[in-house]
Design a protein around this nucleic acid. Structure first.
Lengths: 336, 336
DNA sequence: CTGAAAGCGCTTACAG
DNA sequence: CTGAAAGCGCTTACAG
C-alpha cells in the first residue's frame, strides 16, 4: 500500500522544537546546541524520519537528479557507460532519470524537455543524432551537460572518440601485413561515430597512399536488410583483401559470408572488427578488433565527474573540457 | 545556464484570471468557458508555459515516476526488458528512475528506500537476490510493484520463468538424440534463475529416469576464476555426452574447452546454451539454445502494463497476477 | 463558470 | 542557539 511518511513537522512536535531547528540538523548547517541536536536525532530515528526530496527540490530548486539520454539499452555498449557513470553518481547521492529515445532522433527533443521539466541538475547525452544547432539549443536549456560522441557547439563538456586516429591504426595494421585493397562495411545511421568512422577510413587510406574507391565501400548494412550488403560487396569486389567493419557484430557476419564465398580468413582476406566484445573471442577465427584504451565504464565515470564539476561551478561559461578517447589494437586470428 | 521557468502565476496574471482557473485548463477538469479557456491556452503558448512536475508531485502526492531495480546494465538481457517497459511508460507519460544495484544484493534495500523517498508510483524489480522475507517487506512499502524473476511472497505481481519446465525441454531433447550422461555448468550467484535452473535440471534428470550425479555438475563458473571449471568438469568426467550450460556465453566457452580437449561437438558431446543471443549464431558449431517464447522486450512491456494496472487500482489487496514465462528450443549444430 | 485560502514538506532570509 | 513567517509552484476542497 505504500507507507505513511513522517514529516519534519512530526519530528519538530515530538522533539518540542521548531521545524527550522529540525531542518538545521538534517542539513548540518547553522549553530545548534549539542543537547537539542542529540534529542532531534533520536526522535528522527524513533520516528524513522526520512526527508522528502520532492519538497526539498521545490524549495531549493535543485534535485540531485541527472538525466541520461540514451538511444537504446539493448546495446551493452551504452549499458556499460551508464553503469560507470551511475557508480560515481551513487557515491555522490545523485540519481538517474532515464531518457530513452528508442533510437528515434525525433524523440531527442522531447527527452531533453522532460529533463528540463523535471529540473535535473545536469544531463549526459549519449550518441545523439540531432543537428549540431538543435543539440546546442537543447543543452543550453539544461543546467549542465556532458555530450558523449554527440555533436554540439557549445554549452557542454564533450567526450568523443578520435575516429580518424583510430582508423589510421586499423589501416596501418592491414598495410603492414600486406593488404592493399581495403573495403569497408558501415552502418546506415547518422551518428557521430558512423559518420566519422567512415570519414576516418577514407582519409586513412589517402594518407597511406592507397586509392579510396567508393565502390569498395558499403555503408548500407542493416540487420534486417533483404539483401546482404557484405555478400554483395565481396562478390562484386573479389580483389578486396582487407575488410574493415563498423563493429564486431558485422565483422562476425563477414566471417560467415567469407565461409559462404569460400574465401579463407585471414589468408585470402583479413577481417577487422571494432569494439572488443565477448563475441570477438568466440568466433572462428577469432576477431582482430580495436577497443577503447580505457574501459567503457571508465568513460561513463569520467563523464559523470565532469558533469558534477560543472554542476558545482554552476555555469556554462567555463572552458570547454574536451576529452578525446583513443583506441588500441587487439590482434587475433582474423587479421594477424 | 538553464532556463528561467514561467509559472502558473505568470500565466494567470497575463491572462487576467486566477491560478485556479489556469490549473483547470492545464488539467482539463472542471467547467470553464470556451472563451477564457482559449485565452489561457494562448497565453500559455506565448509564454511557453510548462507545468512543474515537482510542484505537482508535492501537491498531489503522485509522481508519474517508476523505479526500476536492475542488477546491471552491461547485460543486454536486462536492457531489453527495460526498453520494452519504457515504451509502455513513455506512452503513458511515466518516467523511469534508475535503481542500479551494481549486482550487490546489499544495495537492494538502499535502492528500494530511494524509490520510496522519491515517491515513485510503482516499482519493477528485476532478478533481485534479497531473501523472500526482505523483498516482501521492501515491496510492501511501495505503492505498487511487479517482480520479475524475483522471489517475493506478496504485494507484487510476479513474472517469472518456468525453469523446471524449461529444463525438461532441454533434457528431453538431449535424451531423444541419444545422450545419457548429462553434465551441467551453472553460475555461482544466488538468483532466482540460477537456483531454479539447477533444480530444474536435477528434477528433469530424475523424471527422465537418469541418475543425477553431483560430480557431473558444476555451479562454480566465474568469469575471472583462476581455474576453468568447464575444463575440470569435462576432464574429470569423460563420459559426459551432453552438457547443459547456464547461459550461452558459458556454452561458447564450453565449445572452446571441447576443442582444447579434442572432443568433437556434437559427435562426442552435445552442448546446449540458454538464451538466444547473437553470439549463439556466430560460434562454430552454432549453438543450440532455448529462448523465451515471447521477446524480452515484450516481457518488459507486459510488466509495465501490469504495474500501471496496479497503480490505477491503487492497492495491493488485489489478487496476485502471476505470469509464467515459457521457453522454446532453438536447434542448431551444437546439439542437433 | 470563476476565485480566495490553505496545504503539500521542505528551506531561506530575518529576528531575537 | 532557536523560531515565526514567507515562499517554492502546484492542487484541493469550499464558496459564490
Amino acid at each position: 500500500m505504500g507507507k505513511q511518511h513522517v514529516t519534519i513537522a512530526d519530528v519538530a512536535e515530538k522533539a518540542n522544537v521548531s521545524k527550522m531547528t529540525v531542518s538545521r540538523v538534517i542539513n548540518n548547517k547553522g549553530e545548534i546546541s549539542a543537547a537539542t541536536r542529540q534529542r532531534i536525532l533520536q526522535v528522527m530515528d524513533e520516528l524513522g524520519y526520512r526527508p522528502n526530496p520532492i519538497a526539498r527540490s521545490l524549495a531549493t530548486n535543485t534535485t540531485l537528479r541527472i538525466g541520461i539520454l540514451v538511444p537504446t539499452l539493448s546495446n551493452p555498449y551504452f549499458g556499460a557507460i551508464i553503469e560507470g557513470a551511475e557508480r560515481v553518481f551513487w557515491e555522490n547521492n545523485y540519481h538517474i532519470l532515464l531518457g530513452h529515445t528508442d533510437s528515434e532522433p525525433s524523440r531527442e527533443q522531447a527527452v531533453m524537455e522532460i529533463f528540463e521539466d523535471h529540473r535535473v541538475d545536469g544531463v549526459i547525452v549519449l550518441s545523439a543524432r540531432s543537428s549540431s544547432e538543435a543539440m546546442t539549443q537543447y543543452v543550453r536549456n539544461q543546467r549542465a551537460a556532458v555530450a558523449i560522441n554527440t555533436v554540439v557547439k557549445a554549452g557542454a563538456a564533450r567526450v568523443y572518440t578520435d575516429e580518424l586516429k583510430t582508423m589510421a591504426l586499423v589501416v596501418n595494421h592491414l598495410m603492414k601485413t600486406g593488404r592493399r585493397h581495403l573495403g569497408y562495411i558501415g552502418l546506415d545511421i547518422n551518428t557521430y561515430a558512423s559518420i566519422n568512422r567512415y570519414r576516418g577510413f577514407e582519409s586513412a587510406l589517402k594518407n597511406a597512399g592507397l586509392r579510396f574507391d567508393p565502390n569498395q565501400q558499403s555503408t548500407a548494412w542493416h540487420d534486417n536488410a533483404p539483401s546482404n550488403p557484405i555478400y554483395e560487396l565481396l562478390k562484386a569486389n573479389p580483389r578486396i583483401d582487407g575488410l574493415v567493419c563498423y563493429n564486431s557484430g558485422i565483422a562476425a557476419r563477414a566471417l560467415q559470408v567469407c565461409a559462404r564465398l569460400g574465401r579463407c580468413v585471414p589468408d585470402d582476406i583479413a577481417i577487422m572488427g571494432y569494439d572488443d566484445i565477448f563475441l570477438a573471442e568466440m568466433t572462428s577465427p577469432t576477431l582482430t578488433t580495436i577497443d577503447l584504451v580505457i574501459p567503457k565504464e571508465e568513460v561513463g565515470a569520467m563523464a559523470a565527474r565532469l558533469l558534477l564539476e560543472r554542476i558545482e561551478n554552476g555555469d556554462h561559461a567555463q572552458e570547454q573540457a574536451d576529452v578525446i578517447l583513443e583506441h588500441k589494437l587487439i590482434i587475433r586470428d582474423s587479421a594477424p
